[in-house]
Design a protein around this nucleic acid. Structure first.
Lengths: 350, 350
DNA sequence: CTGTTAGCGCTTTCAG
DNA sequence: CTGAAAGCGCTAACAG
């Protein structure tokens, strides 16, 4: 432990002045290579590290991004995607010298209060928001108050979508579900059902659109028939089972099911028991454990995109990018992880 | 946005000097109520917030605790417990004015490097470690270098266990499994199997001990018979199914199974398909979704314990407690969450 | 109880 | 390219 060395100590050892040391750290090109090396050596031998708070006080930058940890990992099954995103974000932020600070909030209003608290205290430079929703008051507040932020998730309101103040990264769910559907179409008959959420959620509707596109393009079924293959339920496991039974009843036969989430896929799986292929969404550990296919969000890419938008592609510092040259958003294409069917529930048990 | 007001601004408005303001904030009892209120009013009307970095620089405290986000959410199923712990920790830390900073590391050695980096830069005051293991080099380094830390998880080495430098909080797995086993004994026959991990892991052995205690006390079986009811496998889902089949073969009949994890419980469930009760450990979302009983760690209590040890029961500041008066560790008793059996895989599907 | 004086460790002018 | 001076916003001593 002991007292940490300061720039002054380093300067003493290297035989230069304090800000030469500072220059070596912050603008190495200004310092003659020879001197630079001497300073570096001193830094190394003393084990010097710049004092983060001092630097932050001076530069008025915290180099820290704040992210709220969701209150309850909703379903829990899909909740792990936040977990994975968080990990990717932390890892990549680290590499750019950015720290990730956690906070919690009881609801949107409280979250706004946290925004205020954390940014007023200069604790964070920017925020990363997850699970945005229609007419989200949080983004509104952030924009109005000139705070830097990026959302993981499109703003689903009509105007927001193109608001240049609103930077976002999202996963192209439509493309993912389209691919999943096309995959099932190519594997078996044309009657691929879709178990989605009730319409109204941007994310859910977007994914449903992907199913519809693929079906129109490749199933040869009529609109009437397609309607019979489309179910909308709340996102809890048992509903997946109910929905699949209902679809089978309505449509007579099912050749496969694409689900809007792994939770519903799990439910569907318990009802189909391996008879027909089921594809989920999120590629959660459950999908892997039970061996069903799922659409995987590329959380690494999302995290990279978030950071890029935040640092304006300059890396390192959090600062707005140029509204003209820099992109304001990024759509990441997910990847279908194909698995050979439910090895456990299906083949082995039943 | 605009420039944040500083103590000087507040002092100006309230008509007092700078440190009277500071005193109002840090030692209110030193200031006459009348003045105090005037200052408070000024603070409020200006929307003043102390600048965190300035304060940290001055006090040489970061009021921040660092926690590593596990590299890969191992199984994923049980990985969510870190997630939940993190949430509880953040929430409670918040209330004490402590921030939670995340970092990642590729392994124990790298994690130590991060400890050094974060504490040298005065970014964090203390660390919280999860998933400690036998002869963990991390705790050794932290102790040697005088860094504050608390582990979630006992040190399983013999000496470490009583090391007064090592503060820890853990969940009493033995008690949890004992209760789970007793519960199954009371519900059905005496042949309650145990599916655990290979011996060697402190956590796993501890839980196994719980099963053994309950069985010796309440099953009336011989040691010989008990041995036939005890399986040890690696923690992946399919192993749970294999193990249960093996046990049934060896022991002839099974009246229930207690598993060391929800992952194995899920596997066991697919093989037993609701014939006999299965109890898991961790009470993950999967247990809830599928409706099987599980031993729930009390993450809120663990988080509270961690913070208490960290702040030496004084709350607020991170500082070692008195080695004599303050407790050095805390064992939290888990809770058995009883569910009426696998509603999905069991009753409905099969 | 209140004000004055100093300085945490760093970076950013601006001269040399 | 290097050095000297100044101050980010705050709080801990001490003196009034």
């Amino acid at each position: 432990m002991g007292a940490q060395p300061t720039v002054t100590d380093v300067a003493g050892v290297a035989g230069v002045s304090r800000q030469t040391v500072s220059n070596v750290l912050n603008a190495p090109e200004l310092v003659r290579p020879e001197t630079r090396e001497r300073v570096q050596a001193a830094i190394h031998s003393l084990g010097y590290r710049p004092h983060a708070s001092a630097r932050r006080l001076r530069t008025q930058k915290s180099s820290t991004i704040g992210i709220r940890l969701d209150p309850i990992t909703q379903d829990g099954i899909s909740g792990s995607i936040l977990d994975r995103f968080l990990h990717a974000l932390t890892e990549q932020a680290d590499r750019q010298g950015l720290r990730v600070l956690l906070f919690t909030a009881t609801g949107p209003e409280d979250e706004i209060e946290q925004f205020r608290r954390l940014s007023d205290a200069a604790d964070v430079d920017a925020f990363v928001l997850t699970s945005t929703f229609h007419g989200d008051p949080r983004t509104e507040w952030l924009i109005e108050n000139g705070r830097s932020f990026v959302t993981f998730g499109r703003p689903w309101g009509i105007d927001d979508m193109t608001d240049p103040e609103h930077l976002w990264v999202d996963v192209d769910g439509r493309a993912g579900v389209r691919e999943a559907t096309a995959h099932l179409l190519s594997r078996g008959g044309p009657r691929i059902g879709f178990i989605g959420w009730p319409s109204g959620s941007g994310t859910g509707d977007d994914r449903r659109a992907g199913w519809l596109e693929a079906m129109r393009a490749g199933s040869g079924l009529t609109e009437e028939e397609l309607r019979l293959l489309d179910a909308a339920v709340e996102d809890v496991v048992p509903n997946g089972a109910d929905a699949v039974r209902r679809l089978e009843q309505r449509a007579g036969r099912l050749d496969g099911v694409v689900c809007v989430s792994d939770s519903l896929a799990l439910g569907a799986l318990t009802a189909t028991a391996g008879r027909i292929p089921v594809v989920g969404y999120d590629d959660t550990p459950v999908a892997e454990a039970l061996g069903f296919s799922s659409v995987a969000q590329q959380l690494d890419e999302v995290a990279a995109g978030v950071l890029e938008l935040l640092t304006g592609a300059h890396g390192g510092r959090v600062q707005r990018g140029d509204p003209v040259t820099d992109p304001r958003h990024r759509l990441v294409t997910p990847r279908l992880v194909v698995r050979d069917g439910p090895s456990l529930i299906g083949d082995r048990t039943l």
